[in-house]
Simulated assay, not measured.
Amino acid sequence: MPVTAVGLQLGFAGSPPFAAQVLRRLIADGNAPKLVLTQPDRRAGRGKRLTPSAVSVAASNAGIEVVTATNLRAADTVERLSAARLDALVVIAYGLILPSEILNLPPYGCINVHASLLPRWRGAAPIERAILAGDERTGITIMAMDEGLDTGAIYLAGETPILPTDTGDTLRARLADLGGELLTQVLTNLTDLPADIPVPQDQVGACYAAKLKPEEARIDWSQPAIELARKVQAFNSRMPAFAYLGEHRIRIFLADANPTASSADPGTILDATRAGMAVATGRGQLMISSLAMPRGKGKPMSVANALNGYADLLAPGRRFNG
C-alpha cells in the first residue's frame, strides 16, 4: 500500500537544515518518506559533542527510519536502499555525489531540490554565490538527477527576489519553503507527466557555485562597500565575515553600503555611534550595525552595545588591518 499522499514509496537523502525544512514539509503534507539517508553524527559546538544532522533529527522526531552513510558505493548501503523498494529518492544537499548504482535504483529516479535557477549556480553554495554576485533573483529548481554536477533535466522551477535586506539565512529559509511547495507539485504529478517533462537544461548561462572557503570571509577594505556589504549578508551566521583591528578579530554580521566617498584610507573607522559604525572602503563606506567582539561570549551585538565595552577600540580614526 502507498505510504504517501502522492501514492509513492519515497526515500529522502539530505543532511543540513535546508534539507530538514523540506523534509518537514513533506511529512506535514502526508508524504513522509519510508526511510531517510543522511550523514553520520559529527562533532560540533564548543564541547565537540557528537551531533546528528538536522535531517536525522527531523526524521527521528517523525519516527522515520534513519540510515547513515559516508560511502554511498558501499554494498550494504545500496542493498538497504534496494530492499526498501523505493519509487523515487528525493535528494537535497546530502554532501556526497550519488553513484550510478543509486541514481538508477528507483523507477522514477532521484529527484533533487536545488537552491538556484539552473543552470546558473550549479554546485555547493548557490545561495551565498547569488548574493555575492549581486543577483536580483534566484529560486528553486526541481531536477532529475544524472551523473553530472547539477546538470539533470528540469521538472519545475520557481523564483524569488533577493531582497536588499536578505542574508544567507533569510534567503535560505524562503527558498526551503519554496522548495517544499514545488517538490510536492512534482511528486503529485510524477506518474503522469507529459512526454516533454523533464526538460533538458540549457547550457547557456551555466556557472559554478564553488564551496565557501574560510579565507573568503575576511574583509578586504580596498574593495567597494557594496561588495563588502554583500559578503557580510551572504556569509552571515554560516561563516561570518571578519576583520582584524590590531590583534582583535571582529566578526561582522549585518552591514549596508553607503556610496558617500571618503578621503580616509580603507579600513579607517569614520564614525562610531549608537546608530552604527562607518568604515572607509575602496569606494564608499561600510555601515556596520551588528558585530561580535573577540572577548566574552562572542555573540552578535549591536554597535551600541559594543561601544559600552569597546569604545576606545572602536574609536574614529582607528584602522582595521588590511
Rank of each mutant, 00 (worst) to 15 (best):
V113Y: 11
V78A: 08
M143I: 14
A144K: 14
A144G: 01
M143G: 09
D135N: 12
L103H: 05
A125Q: 05
A133T: 06
I140L: 12
G123A: 03
E128D: 09
N112H: 03
L132H: 07
M145R: 07
G95M: 04
N104Y: 01
H114K: 12
G95E: 01
S100G: 05
A84K: 03
R122C: 13
S116I: 06
A130Y: 07
R85S: 15
I127L: 10
P119A: 10
T141R: 08
A88T: 09
A130F: 05
L81E: 02
L105I: 01
P119S: 08
I142K: 07
I140P: 09
G123H: 07
L117M: 12
I142T: 08
I131V: 10
S82H: 14
L89N: 10
R80E: 08
A115Q: 04
R129C: 02
T77N: 02
L98M: 14
A93T: 05
G134P: 09
R129S: 10
A84T: 06
I111E: 04
L98I: 08
Y94T: 07
L105K: 05
M143V: 13
D87E: 12
L96H: 15
T77F: 08
V90L: 06
L81Y: 01
A75H: 14
P126W: 12
A75M: 10
D135Q: 06
V113Q: 11
E79R: 15
E136A: 14
G134E: 07
Y94I: 02
T138P: 09
L103E: 02
I97E: 03
V91M: 05
R80Q: 13
P126R: 12
E101I: 00
D76C: 01
I111L: 04
N112A: 10
T77E: 05
L118M: 03
V91T: 08
E136T: 12
T141N: 11
A130Q: 10
P106V: 06
I142H: 03
A115N: 05
D87Y: 09
M145F: 01
G139Y: 02
P99F: 06
M143K: 04
D76H: 15
M143C: 06
A93C: 06
P119L: 11
N104D: 15
D76E: 15
S82D: 15
V78D: 06
I97P: 00
L118Y: 02
I140H: 13
S82T: 14
E136S: 14
A75L: 13
G109V: 11
E136K: 14
E128C: 01
A75I: 12
H114S: 13
G134M: 04
I140C: 12
R120L: 03
W121R: 01
L81P: 12
L96M: 13
N112K: 07
V91I: 13
L132T: 06
R120D: 10
V113C: 09
A144D: 13
E79G: 08
P106A: 07
P126Y: 13
E79C: 01
